[in-house]
């Protein structure tokens, strides 16, 4: 049975986000709550999450954030650690299904009602304004929490001893490169896993061209292939082989350049 999450109505999302202008995270923390009159649930399809569960989720995320060095500005390593921990928790413990997770308004509720202050810690104001995508769910690959859930979902490998181990293997910027190709690459979790695995193998090999450049170039090559290859049905081992070959191609051309 899946858990249904409240969906914040779009007009309320807009209102709450504009209300955030100029407010500090600590001010936002005071406004945070576990319910909204302007949130609805899907009519059928699962059990509605309770307020207590939502409160527990908010507390957990906040705890993880504090453990990660917030509200001070933590370093990259700590920030990554926070991201991974939240991703793991969202994916493992909330009972959220891909169907729910694909609802922008669910993430708007989490980002604007439940833990706006944590999102503000993670993506602070720039020039006095917050970035809407990080809060409203208008782009799930950029929303503070949605992107983490997606990342965990895509990299989840049920066959591995630690199903989330791949998340720890690759840095934020590299993963962003991959996840941003959401239609051509991230839509096939097996491909993402293969890309990450191949990248990890390559990162250890210490050659001339930085592994990150190889990653980016090989992604371009994979994009060409996914235009006519449907990788969803290819065994994961073969996808990995395919990715390795693209990386070899990329490295060949990049080393020359």
């Amino acid at each position: 049975m899946s858990i249904l999450f409240p969906r914040l109505l779009p007009s309320e999302s807009d209102r709450l986000f504009s209300g955030m202008r100029g407010r500090t995270p600590s001010e936002l923390r005071e406004q945070a709550g576990n319910s909204s009159l302007r949130a609805v649930f899907a009519a059928t399809g699962g059990t509605r999450v309770t307020r207590n569960e939502l409160q527990l989720l908010a507390t957990t995320i906040e705890t993880l954030a504090i453990a990660g060095g917030y509200p001070e500005m933590p370093g990259t390593a700590q920030r990554n650690q926070f991201d991974r921990a939240v991703a793991r928790h969202l994916h493992q413990h909330t009972g959220m299904t891909p169907g729910e997770a694909s609802q922008r308004q669910v993430w708007a509720f989490l980002g604007l009602v439940l833990v706006p202050h944590v999102c503000a810690w993670r993506f602070p104001m720039k020039d006095g304004v917050y970035v809407a995508d990080r809060f409203k769910g208008s782009d799930l690959t950029r929303h503070t929490l949605a992107r983490l859930w997606t990342r965990a979902h895509v990299l989840y490998d049920s066959a591995a001893p630690d199903p989330y181990a791949l998340m720890d293997a690759v840095g934020e910027a590299d993963l962003d490169q991959i996840m941003a190709r959401r239609r051509a690459v991230a839509a096939t979790p097996a491909l993402v896993r293969a890309i990450v695995r191949a990248h990890v193998e390559d990162s250890n090999s210490g050659e001339d061209t930085p592994a990150r450049a190889v990653l980016r170039d090989s992604l371009q090559r994979l994009l060409r292939l996914t235009a006519f290859l449907d990788l969803d049905w290819i065994p994961e081992e073969q996808i990995l082989q395919l990715v390795r070959e693209q990386r070899i191609e990329s490295r060949k051309h990049l080393d020359v350049a």
Binding site: R181, R183, A184, V185, D217, S218, Q220, R221, L222, L223, R224, L225, T226, A227, E249, S250, K252, H253, L254, V256, A257
Partner: peptide, 17 residues
Amino acid sequence: AVITGEGGAETAKPAGS
């Protein structure tokens, strides 16, 4: 033009392609 799996024309070209 080459089209990619994203559904549009390729914007960034692989090296040496």
